[in-house]
Nucleic acid binder design. Structure first.
Lengths: 145, 145
DNA sequence: TATTGTTATACTCTATAACTATA
DNA sequence: TATAGTTATAGAGTATAACAATA
């Protein structure tokens, strides 16, 4: 039967958190498009995955307040990355969708981050790469994916 | 001699990026402490692990600019979480060390903030935990730490 | 002169409060 | 009235530029 975490687990938890957060920071730093913030790109990615959404739905999904989403959408719209259309039945609401330009930006961003990480991986030995490969499913399980 | 990334490496790169970013997002969502910023806590944790360091070394390690580290240290010092002492041989430098209060705060903070991850870790076997432990240094090397 | 670190200042991102338009 | 969204304003965090102290 599963018991409380051991002291060793607690230490591992701490170090894992720090290492994962640090690598995630480095990955974020490699974004191809420095003109847009992580939140702006994340919002764009959400629109790509989910299709058209209202500002309120986007704010809830991205865990930001409506005024913050308002600003994010203002930037994305002025850069022609999203398109704003009227809601079919409710005049108060709007529907945001990603444009072709927006999709291109996301694709370029992903290519660049993967290229950077692939370059870092060349510093590892075959044995180390294998160890990394075997651990990936564990990371996904921890994340609940 | 190291060559261009193989196709297998490219796939690993893509999957690693997705897994790390996803776990980082989940971890960030578990934050409970509002008293100190992530950077402040990370700096404190670095001092705990590495022992006394100079502001410049800390800035390099935490990937922030010297003025930003200056501000971080100002907060930590005024909260009695770090102690500033003169460098033994170079009058320009200083040595920052974590105080007993700092260690206590870190311990309490970690207990709160890492409860989620520790809980996730209980779903892993001893073998899987060991694999995870061995891979942590690789993540740090990829991040350039 | 070069290096270490701080101070002055500005910019980005997000939040709360107040406001407008529609249901 | 209640809801969806925007505008006004403030706070936190980090950066560049200019400065002070020491090597």
């Amino acid at each position: 039967m599963p018991l409380a975490p051991t002291a060793a687990d607690a230490a591992l938890s701490s170090q894992l958190r720090i290492s994962v957060m640090r690598l995630a920071r480095r990955l974020r730093a490699q974004r191809a498009d420095t003109a847009h913030s992580p939140s702006q790109v994340a919002t764009l990615a959400t629109l790509e995955r989910h299709g058209p959404l209202t500002p309120g739905e986007l704010a809830a999904h991205e865990k930001v307040r409506p005024p913050s989403m308002s600003r994010i959408l203002g930037v994305l719209e002025s850069d022609d990355l999203v398109l704003r259309t009227a809601h079919p039945t409710d005049g108060r609401q709007q529907l945001l969708s990603i444009t072709r330009t927006g999709r291109s930006l996301l694709a370029a961003d992903r290519r660049r981050r993967e290229a950077w990480l692939a370059r870092q991986l060349t510093d590892l030995t075959a044995t180390e790469l294998e160890a990394l490969r075997e651990v990936l499913p564990l990371l996904d399980r921890l994340a609940g994916a």
